[in-house]
Design a binder for these strands. Structure first.
Length: 336
RNA sequence: AGGGCGUUAGCUCAGUUUGGUAGAGCAGCGGACUCCAAAUCCGCAGGCCGCAGGUUCGAGUCCUGCACGCCCUGCCA
């Protein structure tokens, strides 16, 4: 069996309200890729993975639904990309077990994200420790060739490559017909998205700007973005400004240079230009950028069955691919 | 597996000796100030006191069981 067709695979954690960091770091990429690999983008909502942290059944269900709504509102086209619940393809857990049996403890003990969490004082469950195995199963079960990830996830994809090879070698796959195919990393061009406190925007820092924040609540959040204490009318350091960094994400290069000029001179059209004005502009840009998506989101919220139907239809196709891979692996190791 | 210690607000902990209206700091939220923030000031909110029984007029506090965590010892290899 030759290398399968190009196929993109990525997962999204349903661990809370999606924010601008998620959008620019992953979601926008995912949606763009559906044009480059139409029909071959597999995106799953990682509810099994979420169990490593979430302890609230209703919240998990709500978050999964919210991720689906958000993706569809932002332009995910179910004709070009699959969007399904990880747990709707339970075959993946069986493959994860098989992989765990060909994976050394040392490989997992070396995982950065695991070590970081333990160092931060998180008490690890077995599930947290074996997280990369489930992730490998997620990728390998769909014969994915392209895995778009940020820098922090590269190691996990490399571990996936290792596990694929270990499995193939352990069960004597012919060189030209591996049971599992080594995926490639597609390093996403992740721009730096600062949170309102200046650290990287992340749910765990509590410094996020939700994608669909708007009106008064958005003004409040943007208002709280940390700035330095440059007095009004004096030059502002654009390159060290969180507001400018966020603003840049929404601006064309030419617009960005214009704003940079306002920062450099501390003036706009002869009037003093300060952080307050920059924040007002940011609010406008955010509202404008997501206006259409916000409207679609409202429609989808009113029609949960439609969202559910997309998830189910996607899962059906994903499951076909998954059972075929699983069947191959079962035979390979003697389970069938 | 046995023993010791621990479990109280989002976080760090006090309150257990002597049973009597659950507290502090930090974080959070609101307001003042500021072009906006920060800092500062004012204010607010925050809790099945791990779970389940028991004693008592009354249990965060005493007794029993259980769960989870850390440490020591043992067992297995």
């Amino acid at each position: 069996m030759s290398r399968p067709t190009a196929r993109v695979l990525s997962g999204i954690q349903p661990s809370g309200q999606l924010h601008l960091g998620n959008y620019f770091g992953a979601i926008a990429q995912h949606i763009a890729l559906q044009e480059r690999y139409p029909g071959e983008c597999f995106y799953f909502i990682a509810d099994y993975h979420a169990l490593t942290t979430v302890r609230d059944a209703d919240a998990l269900r709500a978050n999964v639904h919210d991720v689906a709504v958000t993706y569809l509102a932002l332009g995910l086209d179910p004709e070009k990309a699959l969007l399904f619940r990880q747990s709707d393809v339970p075959e993946v857990t069986e493959l994860a077990w098989m992989l765990s049996c060909v994976t050394g403890m040392g490989l997992l003990e070396r995982a950065h994200s695991y070590k970081d969490k333990v160092a931060k004082g998180i008490r690890p469950s077995v599930g947290l420790f074996t997280y990369p195995v489930l992730m490998a199963a997620d990728i390998l079960i769909y014969d994915a060739t392209v895995v778009p990830v940020g820098k922090d996830q590269v190691q996990h994809v490399e571990m996936t490559q290792d596990m694929a090879t270990h499995f193939n070698e352990a069960f004597g796959a012919p060189k030209d017909a591996p049971y599992l195919h080594r995926p490639e990393v597609l390093l996403s061009p992740t721009p730096y998205v600062p949170g309102i406190d200046g650290n990287k925007m992340s749910k765990s820092y509590g410094n996020t700007i939700p994608i669909f924040a708007s009106g008064k609540s958005l003004k409040k959040i943007v208002g709280r973005i940390v700035t330095d204490s440059t007095p009004l009318g004096e030059p502002l350091p654009a390159d060290r400004c969180n507001v400018f960094a966020l603003l840049s994400l929404f601006l064309e290069p030419s617009e960005r240079e214009e704003v940079r000029t306002w920062y450099r001179t501390g003036r706009r059209n002869g009037e003093p230009f300060g952080y307050g004005h920059a924040k007002k502009l940011l609010v406008e840009k955010i509202e404008e950028h997501f206006a259409a998506a916000r409207a679609r989101r409202a429609e989808l919220e009113a029609d949960p069955d439609r969202v559910e139907a997309v998830l189910r239809r996607s899962a059906e196709r994903a499951r076909q691919v998954a059972s075929s891979t699983l069947d191959r692996c079962r035979r390979a190791c003697g389970i069938r």
